[in-house]
Amino acid sequence: MSDPSTTPVMLTDRHREALSSAQAQVNRIVLGKQTAVTMSFVALLADGHILIEDLPGLGKTTLAHAIAATVGLEFQRVQFTSDLLPSDVVGVSVFDGAARRFEFHAGPVFTNVLLADEINRAPPRTQSALLEAMAEHQVTVDGVTHALPDPFFVIATQNPVDLSGTYPLPDSQLDRFLMRLNLGYPDRDAERALLAGEDRRSLIAGMLPLLGADDLAQLRRAVAGIHASPALVDYVQALLTRSRQQPGVRVGLSPRAGLALLRASRALALLQGRDHALPDDVQRLFPLIASHRLVADTDAADSGDALAMAILQAIPVD
């Protein structure tokens, strides 16, 4: 028997049109950031989480709100602050005197789309409250495991670590994010349209839910069926190996990073209407998936982005 997880799933015209319309709707809200919007949908289809890092006021939260409104799923937002406790995120067990037992009160993590806003303003203990949720889609409180809703998608935003009041995310937390995105300043035309246009909150309030849970499940099954050739797998493995040998890198990429890269490449191929992933997909995605996972030498001058590009340039495509 064939493995149902890898059996190709044919998408209907309705699914293709809904996916295209969903991206177009988000692009009408987040102006001039088509690449960031595309990559956010890649992460959504690949069952991964995204970390959006940039200066305040550049649209990180707007992008998260727009995606949540478009997929039409249950949405919760948590503003991470220095006094936020783990129980404020995952929930807490409270003793019920009448029933003479502890009752679990679920936290905001029990949702489909979670916006963890300014995640690096909370201390490491609170950040780590999301580790199990992001990796296993469950949380454990007082020895009892509680399953999270399906789908479960985390969009986290963070400010640059050199800004005051921030805590750097630990490597184990960073590894739970499929990719890290940067928005940057808008170009002149996009900024002019933003300044002259309607308030973003009003526009988000008027957004239509174009994808639901069943649609997303169908799209994710289709992603799993996108073909990745043996040569493409060899290319990904060569990138992983090079990352562990690259000058300036203390800790290279793990096999989990390679699996994430292949999964995202399949999702990007689906978005572009192909039934197979290409080396171009891998090259486009590699800096976004690798840069936050690479651990540089303490005396290395290069950033994670520069190291990822150096690794990519060192491995030719056969």
Rank of each mutant, 00 (worst) to 15 (best):
D117V: 09
V92C: 01
L169W: 12
V141L: 08
A99C: 06
F80P: 08
G165S: 10
L178P: 06
S93T: 15
E198F: 01
L203Y: 00
A217G: 03
F177S: 00
G197W: 12
V144Q: 06
P151N: 09
L163S: 04
E103F: 04
D96H: 10
P186D: 03
L178C: 12
L203S: 05
A122K: 03
D187M: 09
A106V: 04
V154F: 01
A99D: 12
F153N: 01
M207A: 11
V109S: 05
A217P: 01
E132A: 09
P86E: 05
A205I: 12
R180I: 04
F95K: 15
D214L: 10
R125H: 15
H137E: 12
G184F: 02
V94L: 15
A122Q: 04
D83R: 09
Q138T: 14
R101L: 07
T145H: 10
G184E: 02
T81R: 14
T140K: 09
Q218H: 08
R188N: 03
L130I: 11
L115K: 01
R188H: 11
P209Y: 02
R200Y: 02
L194S: 12
G184S: 05
P209I: 01
G165D: 10
P86S: 06
P149D: 07
P149W: 05
H146A: 10
P149Q: 08
D96Q: 13
A213K: 10
D83N: 09
A147S: 14
L210W: 00
P151A: 07
A99L: 14
D187H: 10
A99I: 09
V94S: 07
D189F: 10
D199E: 13
A196H: 10
R180P: 03
L163N: 04
N182H: 14
S202R: 15
E191R: 12
V154L: 02
F102T: 14
A222K: 05
H146E: 10
A122C: 10
G206S: 14
D215T: 06
L219E: 05
P124S: 08
R201E: 14
V154A: 01
G91A: 06
P124G: 05
Y185K: 05
V141M: 08
R180D: 03
R220V: 07
I119D: 00
M179H: 00
H137K: 12
F110L: 02
R121A: 01
R220H: 13
P108Q: 13
A193M: 08
P151M: 05
A99N: 12
L208P: 00
R188W: 07
D187Q: 09
V92S: 07
T140L: 13
N120V: 09
D88Q: 00
N120M: 11
L178S: 08
P168Q: 08
P151Y: 06
L148C: 11
S128C: 13
R121D: 00
Q218F: 00
L130H: 04
D187P: 07
S202N: 15
L195K: 08
